[in-house]
Simulated assay, not measured.
Amino acid sequence: MSDAFTLNVEKRDVEGKGASRRLRRLAGKVPAIIYGGKSEPQNIQISHKDLVHHLENEAFYSHIISLVVDGKAEDVILKDLQRHPAKPVILHADFQRVVKGQKMKVSVPLHFINEASAKGVKQGGGIVSHLVSELEVNVLPKDLPEFIEVDVANLELGATLHISEINLPKALESVELAHGHDLPVVTIIKPRGMGSDDTATEAEGEADAE
């Protein structure tokens, strides 16, 4: 994992919805909170512009972030983000403290590879359909990955790949699997208008032509 993202933040003394609205509108700041570990929760405020800039990087969502408060840095992960339903505005952010040697629950983005060459696409003419875009895992801070690769090269038309079939690094434990839920992750579906026998019929036609 690369070096942590760094954000300079300020303590926030005023609370309440009205204060938060004024903070966003007049100061261009996002109200946020740091919690977890052995310290008390701390209200902070972050530059909206700086936060949005970092959010453009996918790794920010599953990466250790260094929040600098009054010159003191705290390692955290982004735990929750509230966005305005109609405007490109961040309303609030929750950050959880990272405790060295203690596992944490993190949602890690999935990167699907070999889609164009997958059996169900190349041989069956299917379309790859992502059923989930991230996977929640339990992991030590030092082993936190920026993403998890999901190889669909051998996935056939109509087949579905589940969490248990992902080649997870040993350091990661799927939260869903730990609870006995082997959820579907990706499948290859037939394009609209393609009947169940279309592929076979097409192959037979080609054979007859020869």
Rank of each mutant, 00 (worst) to 15 (best):
T160L: 09
D198L: 03
M1R: 08
V128C: 03
N114A: 00
D151R: 07
D197A: 05
E115K: 13
A178F: 06
E149F: 09
I188H: 05
R25C: 00
L67K: 07
K170V: 10
A19D: 05
G125M: 06
K11H: 11
V121I: 15
G126T: 07
G125Q: 05
I46H: 07
E74C: 01
S133K: 10
L144V: 05
G120N: 08
D50A: 15
I33S: 05
K72E: 15
V132W: 02
G120Q: 05
L135W: 02
S164H: 10
R192Q: 10
L140V: 04
Q42H: 04
V98P: 03
T187Y: 04
V99I: 14
K11I: 02
E149R: 12
E149G: 09
Q82E: 13
P88N: 14
H181L: 11
S196W: 03
D151L: 05
N167V: 03
M194T: 12
R24E: 08
D208K: 12
N114I: 01
K170G: 10
R21W: 03
M1T: 05
E40H: 09
I34G: 08
D182P: 03
K79M: 01
H111G: 00
D151N: 15
V128P: 01
D143V: 02
S20W: 03
D182T: 02
K170Y: 05
G124H: 11
G37T: 07
E58L: 08
V137G: 04
E206I: 12
P145V: 08
G37H: 10
P109M: 04
A178K: 13
K100Y: 06
S164D: 10
K38A: 12
T187K: 11
K170H: 07
E165C: 08
N167D: 12
G158R: 11
L55Y: 08
M104D: 01
P31H: 03
S47Y: 08
T201I: 13
K190P: 00
P184A: 07
M1A: 10
F147R: 13
K105I: 09
R192N: 09
L55W: 10
L177H: 02
L172S: 08
P191K: 07
P31R: 10
I44E: 09
H54Y: 11
G101P: 00
K122H: 04
V150P: 12
E115W: 02
I148V: 15
E10T: 06
E40K: 15
V139K: 07
T160F: 06
I34E: 11
V152R: 13
G28L: 07
A159Q: 15
A159P: 00
Q96I: 02
E173Q: 11
E146P: 01
V68Y: 09
T199P: 00
A93Q: 11
